[in-house]
Design a protein around this nucleic acid. Structure first.
Length: 774
RNA sequence: GCCUCGGUGCUGGAAUUGGUAUACAGGGCGGACUUAAAAUCCGCUGGUCCUAGACCUUGAGGGUUCGAGUCCCUCCCGAGGCACCA
């Protein structure tokens, strides 16, 4: 009989669905395992084979662990708020809710076609009012705890998306979504105080099993530096500076204020007009211009002013320069050109004095501090000046409001008398609106619905206006892993006992592009929820693994505009889901980016056909029995290390091995159970053909029995070079082996007439005869 | 510039963590089957020397070791991230 994947796959997908084969009982006593995929945005194009690579890996891992007796939660849902649906609505006049629904059912179909074993009763959708009710609820908690506040500030503005963006969403001065250069704009915005959590976010990294790369990226983004803060005097005024290198203070030859520094207006100096001019120009520079000027710094001296270096009373010049950032530290620095590259560039350009004060980690030119080691000097000088110890972070607060329609409404009412008041009636439902278009004025389209906007203050009953901004697309994904556990709960975002048992997520798989976005935001919310007693542990995701991109066959990133996207629909039609699943894994290590290759599918398909036509007899030979067990042991070892490409290779070798020997029913069944995690449809079918009534998904991972083999093959080296091989039986001693091999032709030839220095023996593997040098 | 990964046949990759380098797959070449093609099956496929046999070979060079793709040092190349954060 031919391997008819079309028929087989349809048959078993229906079977699994009708028999609820992947339904999970959260309350079971079996050991829990929470295996989570980063949930997708339901785009109109559906998913491509790149998404499926990650989903297949977690599916295989989940199936493996289920067979191993774990109670595995492996859910899927939809991160459905966001710009694309809204843009589509603007273009076609179709409500985002409708397109989103349509896209979800398409992607869900694709996932089912691929044989993914999700429990769809746990499905969630961030745009569902019963879901975003709790997103809003968490926002209110943040607000009540002083972590959400409204502030007028110059924000990153995308002129094309017509909305403000968080720092994390600006890449290279451009909008992360559409690539348009961002500008600065002053708007009153909601901001989340993620900076309060800088230290906790940093500390927590030590307790989780994440790729070093992602940890490193988060550390850099948080950017902790420890140093000192102290004053320089300019006449009767004081300029506070922050430095991590207080030991180099004697090398300070000037100080620099950022253009926005408040002191500039308070000081009296000669060239006011010129300075004013410089500041104006600096403010109008785009992010791009600033970046391109790194090597060619600009600045201007405040003429007639001198600052006093507190350590030695030396008078130094005062500059304004835009290489000093207002928002970091104190917005002013002491410049030490000898020991700071930026100060050096500036000093060279403006011909300023450069004094070296540290050589080979020892202080010089520093009067009473000469001879001290750097670290020691920091402490001594800090104490001497009575300087404040200070820790600064690069991390800035999270800009949380968006001037767009398709997002969670921020549940706040602005009362003329009471100020911002929380909405008590949750969910605050996103209203229908005629025009989705962003207004560009800094208000969202919701602002045009008078009946929705104008409300009475819930506190005093006075005149009030609803907040019209919506939350960013990251909001819903900050806590979704809680909701899968208890997705129908109406009284709380998750039941306490359930989350206590199930969190953290044991394995989280997704792309690395979320390193400082979703993964940082989610950790922040989680830690907040922990601190207010709502989450039972400190970290959301214990083990994180990144899937490598699947590049298109032309080596480029898959994209709709390049027309090089490979759709799983096509592949499944031509080769079936099992071939696709195996190929996705066989391509290479799943954390690595690899090019798609249609030819590779053929190889897998050939393998399945070969497997399909294996001859099965009553009993296996001892040789086949032992080979089966060895294969299972090897595969298990690899799966525990999250390696999915090598198990496929082992299965291929296995099929080769038994194809001319024939395989007994018992061994066939064992290997089918193992193989079923990769090719579930294929294995169910053969499993049934062998007379089994119960689904293969309900079986146990096979036991194996590794018998130590009597004989072993020994590598024989002379002087570290392989010269011969021989078979010995297990009982042979080292001495016996040496005697034996000395007489072998191929060995004799190399040792004849030479003296043996020593013999290294690695039991049952290798023997190396080391000769004396001539 | 800094940080984090990587560099193995024609291609994707494997190598028990210091012990047979190139498993498995693709491609190529040769053959069988076929009127023919596809599919399928069999054989060969790192380099040099005519062969046996030997020597060389994991980005380059050095080192440690009986033994190095794997460890150490220097350098080169590629990918990703950060980037005036004092």
């Amino acid at each position: 009989m031919k391997y008819d994947f079309n028929k087989i796959e349809k048959k078993w997908q229906d079977y699994w669905k009708n028999n609820h084969c992947y339904k999970i009982d959260i309350s079971s006593d079996r050991p829990k395992l929470y295996v989570l995929d980063m949930f997708p945005y339901p785009s109109g194009e559906g998913i491509h084979v790149g998404h499926l690579k990650g989903y297949t890996a977690t599916d295989i891992y989940s199936r493996y662990k289920r067979l191993k007796g774990f109670n595995v939660l492996h859910p899927m849902g939809w991160d459905a708020f966001g710009l694309p649906a809204e843009n589509y609505a603007i273009k076609h006049g179709i409500h985002p809710k409708i397109t989103t629904q349509k896209n979800i059912s398409n992607i869900k179909r694709q996932m089912m076609d691929a044989g993914l074993s999700y429990d769809w009763e746990k499905e969630i959708n961030t745009t569902d009012k019963d879901y975003y009710k709790w997103t809003q609820w968490i926002f209110i908690k943040l607000f009540e705890n002083g972590l959400a506040y409204k502030k007028m500030l110059p924000i990153n503005w995308c002129p094309s998306c017509k909305t403000g963006l968080a720092n994390e969403e600006v890449v290279d001065g451009k909008c992360e979504r559409c690539g348009t250069l961002t500008t600065k704009k002053d708007i009153e915005q909601w901001v989340l105080k993620i900076t309060d959590y800088a230290e906790e976010l940093l500390d927590g990294l030590d307790d989780i099993d994440w790729p070093e790369k992602i940890k490193e990226m988060q550390k850099n983004w948080i950017g902790k530096s420890e140093g000192y803060e102290f004053d320089f005097k300019i006449k009767e005024k004081a300029v506070s500076v922050f430095t991590t290198r207080i030991d180099t203070l004697c090398g300070c030859t000037y100080i620099v204020l950022s253009p926005e520094h408040h002191l500039i207006n308070e000081l009296d100096f000669e060239n006011k007009d010129e300075v004013k001019d410089y500041i104006e120009k600096a403010k109008n520079k785009s992010e791009r211009e600033r970046i391109s000027e790194v090597k060619d710094k600009t600045g201007i001296e405040l003429k007639g002013l001198k600052a006093i270096n507190p350590i030695n009373g030396k008078e130094v010049s005062v500059f304004v320069a835009d290489y000093v950032l207002y928002h970091y530290g104190t917005g002013a620095i002491m410049a030490v050109p000898a020991h700071d590259e930026r100060d050096y560039d500036f000093a060279k350009k403006y011909n300023l004095e450069i004094i070296e004060v540290v050589k080979d980690d020892i202080l010089i030119n520093s009067s009473q501090f000469n001879g001290l080691k750097s670290e020691e000097a920091k402490k001594k000088i800090g104490d001497y000046l009575n300087a404040k110890k200070k820790i600064n972070y690069k991390l800035r607060d999270w800009l949380f409001s968006r001037q767009r329609y398709w997002g969670e409404p921020i549940p706040i009412i602005n009362c003329e008398k009471c100020g911002p008041v929380v909405e008590t009636n949750l969910p605050l439902i996103l209203p229908e609106v005629e025009k989705y278009q962003p207004t560009g004025t800094g208000e969202s389209p919701l602002a045009s619905i008078d009946s929705w906007v104008n409300v009475k203050c819930p506190k005093c009953g006075g005149k009030a206006r609803r907040e019209t901004n919506t939350m960013p697309q990251w909001a819903g994904s900050c806590w979704y892993y809680f909701r899968y556990l208890d997705n129908k709960n109406n009284d709380s975002f998750v039941d306490k006992n359930i989350q206590k048992k199930w969190l953290p997520v044991d394995l989280y798989v997704g792309g690395a592009e979320h390193a400082v976005l979703h993964l940082l935001y989610a950790r922040f919310w989680h830690k907040f929820l922990f601190n207010i007693g709502e989450a039972s542990n400190k970290e959301p995701f214990y083990k994180l693994r990144n899937i490598g991109l699947v590049l298109a066959q032309d080596g480029q990133k898959m994209s709709k505009s390049k027309g090089n996207v490979v759709s799983p629909d096509e592949v499944i039609k031509n080769y079936g889901a099992d071939t696709l699943r195996i190929y996705e894994m066989f391509m290479g290590p799943f954390e690595q980016a690899i090019q798609w290759n249609d030819q590779g599918l053929k190889g897998v398909y050939r393998f399945l056909n070969k497997f399909w036509s294996l001859d099965i007899k009553e009993e296996s030979s001892p040789e086949v029995i032992s080979y089966t067990d060895k294969t299972i042991a090897k595969i298990e070892k690899e799966l525990e290390k999250m390696k999915f490409n090598t198990p496929v290779a082992f299965l291929m070798e296995f099929v080769d091995f038994v194809s001319d020997k024939k395989i007994g029913k018992q061994e066939m069944e064992k290997i089918l159970i193992v193989f079923s995690i990769f090719a579930p449809h294929f294995c169910e079918e053969i499993w049934e053909m062998l007379g089994n009534k119960e689904s293969i998904t309900k079986q146990k991972w096979p036991e194996f029995n590794l018998i130590e083999e009597k004989d072993f093959s020994l590598m024989i080296q002379v002087g570290g070079k392989l010269r011969d091989k021989a078979i010995f039986s297990g009982e042979t001693s080292k001495e016996e082996i040496i005697e034996e091999i000395k007489n072998r032709e191929k060995v004799k030839k190399w040792i004849e007439g030479k003296q043996i220095k020593e013999v290294i023996y690695v039991p049952k593997k290798l023997i190396n005869i080391v000769l004396c040098a001539e």
